[in-house]
Design a binder for these strands. Structure first.
Lengths: 214, 214
DNA sequence: GGTACTCGGATAGTGACGCTCACCAACGAG
DNA sequence: CTCGTTGGTGAGCGTCACTATCCGAGTACC
């Protein structure tokens, strides 16, 4: 198929596809002659993945390129590939370690991980962007005078852990290793907007249950 | 306190504070004379809230203004005020209702709400941005060949509902109505990055538990 | 074989966003 | 009186995700 058809089948404008090609988000098509290139189903699939990451996952173009690099990198083990992809996701700015709220948040999060027995997460704390994001979020609450501590966080963490278990169980239903990796990466990126939407919908449901529509 | 002190105490540059004032995210200070304005603790608090929304919650400036308008609008009831704030949050682009995947996703989500007995959410479906986001996310999965149906979604929805229950329980611990509203809005906005961070950390924990660090 | 169309590729431009800079006249401390 | 600082304003910056335009080379159709 040629560029125009790829565009038609994906619903993405030719100009945008050209942009993705230029940015290295799509591998170039098979060159037939100076003015024609041939694309296949794999290109279509990759294009849809890219669109999903950018539009649904709000992943910036540069990060998409990075994530795809990890997905295609056969030299990594499973944990590393998944981790590398997750870590490439958009991040919160670095916490200011001098800040007293940040320091208190560090303590709180460390206590939380102890309470939960998340030993691996503790080991990853120094390098994991998720850990840093958590510290930043907790610090933001504290700065506003809301003292979220272990007591408040633990039930949320428990629920999120169950969510993660579901994620991985779903992943394991896929037979081939390659497919599992793609699903894991994809799931890590697309699950979040989905969870967020479910969470907001659940909040609306619960709010109206408790207080009605007024 | 004057602008420079507000800047020092909040860690936000004076230029940025001026920008927020111009954009109406902060109410103007009490004018003392042509070159001096006085700000108080309320300004500081509001500024921290704005920063938290923008930096942690990734809420665009225009949305922050909108949300603050709802927070300050005493004419609304609780559900409406919370709803108005939640609905002002960044959204996914409108789903293309012509698209077959979107139509299938609609069916799937409707079936999900039936299964869960989320009657209020069903009523809100036509107007709720959360509902639309959910449809877009499910459609994105389907387009990539992963058929997330009621079976896969229901356990996630159940967990998210429990999360929402926690949210509202936490909100109800606050004594005054005004404080509850602020906490609810804030929670709705800041909880998401926090949940996301917990989710990612839980994924890392669970991945390494199952497959080690390799 | 003529011609109108389409192809891919490349360059430059767009509009939104979140600041950030430079400048200004008006003050206030020494 | 001088000099630094104040709050307010207009314009500018860098990034991002496209998008519009042009080009010369091929292709389909009559």
């Amino acid at each position: 198929m040629r560029l125009a058809e790829l565009s038609r089948r994906s619903g993405v404008s030719t100009a945008t596809i050209k942009y993705y090609l230029r940015e290295g988000l799509l591998p170039p098509g098979r060159q037939i002659n100076a003015t024609t290139a041939e694309y296949d189903e794999e290109h279509l699939r990759r294009l849809r993945l890219v669109r999903a990451m950018i539009q649904v996952g709000q992943v910036p173009v540069a990060k998409v390129r990075e994530v795809l690099g990890h997905v295609d990198d056969d030299s990594l083990g499973r944990s590393m590939r998944l981790g590398a992809s997750l870590w490439a996701l958009p991040q919160v700015p670095e916490p200011d370690e001098e800040d007293e709220y940040v320091q208190a948040a560090h303590q709180e999060v460390a206590a939380l991980l102890d309470r939960l027995g998340w030993r691996n997460a503790k080991l990853l704390a120094a390098i994991s962007p998720a850990y840093r994001s958590l510290v930043v979020a907790v610090a933001a609450f504290r700065r506003l005078g809301y003292d979220w501590g272990v007591e408040q966080l633990a039930p949320y963490a428990e629920l999120m852990h169950r969510t993660a278990v579901l994620d991985l169980d779903n992943m394991e239903t896929h037979p081939s290793e390659a497919e599992r990796i793609e699903f894991a990466v994809l799931g890590a990126i697309l699950n979040e907007p989905l969870l967020q939407a479910l969470h907001r919908l659940a909040q609306e449901e619960e709010t109206t249950r408790r207080y009605g529509f007024a």
